[in-house]
Design a protein around this nucleic acid. Structure first.
Lengths: 143, 143
DNA sequence: TTGATAAGGTCTCATTTAGAGACCTATAAG
DNA sequence: CTTATAGGTCTCTAAATGAGACCTTATCAA
């Protein structure tokens, strides 16, 4: 796979450029999008615009607090558009901006990989638990 | 972009399947890989195998605790191989497994998007800050 | 006329998680 | 005798997260 090579080269570049943790685009965006909810919300909005309460329904285990907070963050970063209809009670619809839509492509890659490799990962996890042989070495005895 | 369509369809499938938050492969893997450090470490290891102290050096702002913890998690999930050389003091080398290497491809997509769109995101953030017209509503005054 | 419900949040509090930094093992160098 | 090194772990504190009460205004049911 030369994707690995390309990725390694990119990392080399960051190092060469001084690797300012705050200025690195990848670090910066990964910090934002790489939480538990952002990418999931973007998947949900990829279906089409949705209202706050609909999002809360299709993702049952997100709290209102985090839903609100994550949507604001995505809006601030220009990935999501928040449209408030001044009815009463107000009706708020969220949708992807063009920028948000452009993120669908890499996100789809991630999602596809996850679906394709989940079994392998689960097998690895299971093996880790059932093979305590290496852990019984006296040299790694803690305390 | 029909990546958006495809992503939306995937989300629809999850919903149709009952959307068990714990059983969803994407949720599960995103929870693991979607923290601040996992993907960054995978980028670093894409360059080639590295020792613990080297990783700590090329990513200056990770604490030893999180470095250790994240590497263990990646090892458990089968993405990273941990190789302990029984020298004294022991020398530990981390490398990508084939599974880890296969993740380089979607990760590269993410990284490429981040680099390409960072300016747009920053512009969106700046606009959010420099357009306080909507923020001056008394009801939304934050701290 | 109460009362409930609804949307779209915010607020407070308790629990998790992350970060900082001391500490530990054993050996070799100065 | 002191320091340094590799690869961590441990504790303590700070920050992020989740649970759930509360808010507003209007409409529907009893």
């Amino acid at each position: 796979m030369d994707a690995r090579i390309a990725l390694g080269l990119k990392f080399s570049e960051w190092l060469a450029m001084g690797h300012d943790p705050g200025g690195c685009p990848v670090r910066n965006l990964l910090d934002r999008l790489g939480d538990r909810w952002s990418m999931l919300l973007l998947c949900a909005l990829a279906q089409g615009p949705k209202r706050f309460s609909v999002l809360a329904r299709v993702i049952p285990d997100i709290s209102k607090r985090m839903l609100s907070q994550t949507l604001r963050s995505l809006e601030t970063d220009g990935l999501v558009l928040r449209d408030v209809q001044p009815t009463v009670p107000p009706s708020v619809t969220y949708s992807l901006t063009p920028l948000g839509e452009s993120f669908a492509s890499p996100l789809l890659g991630l999602v596809t990989w996850a679906e394709a490799n989940f079994d392998v990962v689960r097998a690895a996890r299971a093996q880790g638990r059932s093979d305590p042989g290496d852990l019984s070495q006296p040299s790694s005895q803690v305390s």
